[in-house]
Design a protein around this nucleic acid. Structure first.
Lengths: 150, 150
DNA sequence: GCGAAATCGTTTGTATACGAACGATGGAGG
DNA sequence: CCTCCATCGTTCGTATACAAACGATTTCGC
């Protein structure tokens, strides 16, 4: 008897189909989200990471650079670049921490505060559009499972 | 009556919670997968994209550079770098296409073929470990939903 | 045929992503 | 007090990721 499902493969293991691998699918879904983000973020001209950093600064008020990195899942080296660009655009402030001289304290400027407040609805629309193919129940199920993979 | 769930927010829209956004979750899941990949790929010293390119070349035999990019979801500029590094390691060959002088034809070398054959089981193990938190039914449901987001 | 449009591969510039190493500082323990 | 260790922010090197523009080539429309 020949196996039907695996056709002409004689080895024991299942075939490695790139399109079925979770890593490949995660990468493609992330690509699509980034494209949607860029299309829908509008005038703000923010990248997903810059948006995330501003949102967290909006939530937290003042926070050290490394702590902001942990809250937004960026490592210290990546944080450098993101912070540098937000500083250059005058969206955030930076001052030394009085109690720990290793640290710097980050916070939003007035420009940063109004820009992220205006962009917040876009953030919701972007998440919505990314999940456009799924109905409400499927979205809840997908997000719950996705959270367990982090 | 005050709303309980939204506490002190007076606006109409839902709060923007970074940790609940699909883009942020996709990014973190992809980060975790990349870390697992690096841990488990072993001696082969391949990145996820290099692995994907070799797998597709293994499946297809000969293919143009742009076509390989489409099959692996890489744009032409990204492809450049990946192909350059695989060429430098002697894992792939490159020759002009006789019928279309714009194209180059890519294929695996003997080294490339044996390396990807040896690494294929690692690919399965990496996908398995990435999904470690989910049972069989959850994995199927998650992958089916994830495919619909690409 | 022939001019326009599309495709192929390349290069440049910007922005993640992260390992590794670094100097400066802070905290813990003897 | 003083040494060891951890943490903070920085820099360097490598590898995606993609927009944009480019020259060379092919195909399409008429």
């Amino acid at each position: 008897m020949k196996r039907v499902a695996t056709a002409r493969r004689d080895d024991a293991g299942p075939a490695y189909v790139l399109e079925d691998q979770v890593g490949h699918l995660l990468r493609r879904a992330h690509q699509r989200h980034a494209a949607i983000f860029q299309d829908m973020i509008g005038d703000a001209q923010l990248t997903p990471l810059q948006f995330a950093a501003l949102v967290k600064l909006h939530d937290l008020g003042e926070v050290s650079q490394n702590e902001l990195g942990r809250r937004t899942a960026m490592d210290a080296a990546t944080m450098q670049g993101v912070i540098k660009r937000l500083l250059a655009r005058g969206l955030i402030d930076r001052k030394p921490d009085a109690e720990d001289r290793r640290r710097v304290v980050l916070s939003l400027t007035g420009d940063g505060r109004s820009l992220i407040a205006a962009a917040m609805p876009d953030g919701h629309a972007i998440s919505d559009e990314t999940l456009a193919g799924l109905d409400e129940a499927e979205r809840r199920a997908f997000l719950a499972l996705l959270k367990r993979l982090t």
